[in-house]
Design a protein around this nucleic acid. Sequence first.
DNA 1: TATTGTTATACTCTATAACTATA
DNA 2: TATAGTTATAGAGTATAACAATA
Lengths: 171, 171
Amino acid sequence: MPGGRHDVTASAPQTAPRKRAGNGAAPQDIADDIGLDALVGHAGYAVRRFQIWIFQDFIKTLGEVDIRPTQYSVLTLIGANPGLSQMAVAKRLGIERARLVHLLDSLELRRYVKRVKSKADRRSHALHLTAQGETALAKFKRLAAEHERHVEEKIGKENRAQLLRILAGFT
Amino acid sequence: MPGGRHDVTASAPQTAPRKRAGNGAAPQDIADDIGLDALVGHAGYAVRRFQIWIFQDFIKTLGEVDIRPTQYSVLTLIGANPGLSQMAVAKRLGIERARLVHLLDSLELRRYVKRVKSKADRRSHALHLTAQGETALAKFKRLAAEHERHVEEKIGKENRAQLLRILAGFT
DNA sequence: TATTGTTATACTCTATAACTATA
DNA sequence: TATAGTTATAGAGTATAACAATA
């Protein structure tokens, strides 16, 4: 990528913000003084930019184990609620059930998850982590916690807590 | 859509939050008591879910004019900075320049934008709104402001302001 | 009839690479 | 040689529709 804003290479800039004051999150590394007009007042714009940054840091931090945010959320949910059906997981995480099929295919191939035929309802599968999946998830959680520290370094501990409080209703 | 969490049909629930206390953003309409475990502590998860909600409300609110968030951001940026090159717009908004080509193709087809050959650098195009584009953008901004009010109703005026402050560095 | 998992298709978005015309 | 715009391709992700097995 040609040195764009999506660059996550420097994960903790915290060292003295330049130009526009702010909280340590410095977007304008290079001098482009282009006004955003109405965009600065739109929550969606800021949220989207932040979400891109945060996902890229997550992907990078968990790069060594090749786990992406959605895969992590699926594994965590199954780990905390063994026996869930695919529909239940899809609904809880807001993933299309058609897409979950492929996500689980790949997680099953990697031996993290197994589909067990449900006896109660023979249409559905009960989802479980394998022993290997449990071990792996523990490591993923440690890396995810590291990613979370990057977020703190980026926006500040207090602001991160505020954010979680404000958005708690959407989880 | 089978009544999922992505449902944006009821845009302003504000009327008495049920179950988990919170700020009016109610995710658990139906009784599924599935624990999220580590996910509740991850800013990225909450931010992603919120971003999906906010974009869907934007798309719905600007549905009558068929303008999506990215198109709106491009039009707004050009409107505020006439003569920008495609590279400048792409960099400022964090869009791949390859993708911007198609975005501009469609906006040019709809007569909102025109590409003018730059005399200074004959490789680049100076981007401008057409008269029609100016008029249309004014309407888009009114609708976007309406969308922004939906956000306020959803998370609260104070929280929205906090959010903008916390994420100001990412715009 | 309705639901679960599945397959398939289309469209959006991201990430690259390569080409052209300029610089 | 480097850059601006373009074209093309591959991979996620989203949104649908339809089908088989089962309820």
